[in-house]
């Protein structure tokens, strides 16, 4: 699928709004295999650590951190492209 960085057409969005650190990253790792290589997976999290830990996870696990945006109701969302 085409997925320009602006607009963030994600294939899968994980709602981790109520989950504390480090659960959002754990959910991301669990569900990475649910999207195809090249597709975007996003995690919605209120946990303050996610803003640092999602990019750090991408670096450690060889995935691409696309960026942060917000959901329609203003919750922080972190977008990742599965590379492999």
């Amino acid at each position: 699928m085409s997925s320009p960085h602006d607009g963030h057409a994600v294939a899968l969005e994980l709602d981790c709004t109520t989950l504390p650190c480090p659960m959002p990253v754990i959910e991301l790792a669990r569900h990475l295999g649910d999207v195809a290589a090249g597709e975007l997976i996003a995690v919605v999290a209120m946990d303050a650590a996610a803003a640092v830990d999602v990019p750090a996870w991408c670096r450690m696990k060889g995935q691409e951190y696309v960026g942060a945006d917000v959901t329609e109701d203003g919750r922080p969302r972190y977008v990742v492209r599965r590379l492999g």
Partner: peptide, 24 residues
């Protein structure tokens, strides 16, 4: 320095500024 060990529930600003993993 992880958030879950801090009374503020925010991760270490040092680890955050370095852009390194803050949990665990």
């Amino acid at each position: 320095g992880s958030a879950c060990t801090a009374s503020t529930l925010t991760p270490s600003h040092v680890l955050e500024a370095m852009g390194v993993l803050t949990h665990g």
